[in-house]
Design a protein around this nucleic acid. Structure first.
Lengths: 150, 150
DNA sequence: CTGCGTGCAAACATTTTGCACGATG
DNA sequence: CATCGTGCAAAATGTTTGCACGCAG
């Protein structure tokens, strides 16, 4: 997938567009729904340009998260996973099902209406009640996948 | 709060009730809604009995999570937080609001009906569709608290 | 008395950081 | 050309593990 929208966002925010950032963005865009770890991103990026180091991946992912272009997930494996946020108007929003045994992660976007209904109520209510400016959310279900069921 | 119900669950599962485990359980019970980190649990436990080591806290928390007595959370701070699961029939179920700047964590349990409605639909649908045995879930909203709002 | 749990310290894994150099706008 | 970004290696942080000892059942 092409990552021009994300590049444009960075330019708009006056962030330098270096080769490392471009490559990392395109790696993420090519694996939009695979919530890769830093190491996985690093390996792919390093393949495309071996001069890219691990620290750049960490720094770039922080940047993308802070600028609202990516989301950080920690599913309890002891390492973070990342995903680009969907471009506005594009589908792609989803949540996660996590197997406690094999750590398989399944994306789902079923029940969008029921979900939207709850999230709208909650976001509105919470921001008023707790004086909180909500930017995003995560929903995870934990359990055992078919292969691991007890 | 007293932690007899949790002790009873461990006994029922034939887990040895050692002093360390008792102390850790009671620390958790006394801080039921404060999602302490391992270090915080360790400090309180160590206060009550200085012979308790860090490793015991890690091992005990793993045990409690695996036996379904505690839940593990990772809110993106790079360290895990834990909470005892509410005793059946008791209130206490809640979700979290996380400030991206100061890491303040607010518990909420507003909108229980809307939430229950969505969760029921989702759990049923997901377990059928993905052949997944769901044990628990987490919902988090991320943003900026009143003090940190941009 | 037997096996499980524990403390301790070492090992491990992930993430962060300081610094000198290089690239971007 | 001034600033910001980068690679590298070292450090910091959080978590896991091996081992010998000791307690629970």
């Amino acid at each position: 997938m092409d990552h021009n929208w994300y590049r444009a966002q960075l330019e708009k925010q006056e962030i330098r567009l270096t080769e490392g950032r471009e490559i990392i963005l395109s790696v993420l865009a090519d694996h939009l729904t695979e919530h890769p770890t830093v190491e996985e991103i690093y390996l792919k990026a390093h393949e495309r340009n071996p001069s890219i180091g691990m620290a750049t991946v960490y720094r770039t992912m922080d940047l993308l998260v802070n600028r609202g272009l990516a989301q950080k997930f920690e599913f309890g494996e002891g390492k973070a996973r990342y995903e680009l946020v969907p471009k506005p108007g594009e589908p792609g929003h989803h949540h996660h099902l996590v197997c406690k045994r094999c750590n398989k992660i399944i994306n789902y976007d079923d029940f969008p209406e029921a979900e939207k209904q709850y999230l709208n109520i909650a976001e509105k209510g919470l921001s008023e009640r707790y004086n909180f400016c909500i930017e995003d959310h995560q929903i995870q279900f934990y359990g055992y996948c078919g292969d691991c069921a007890e």
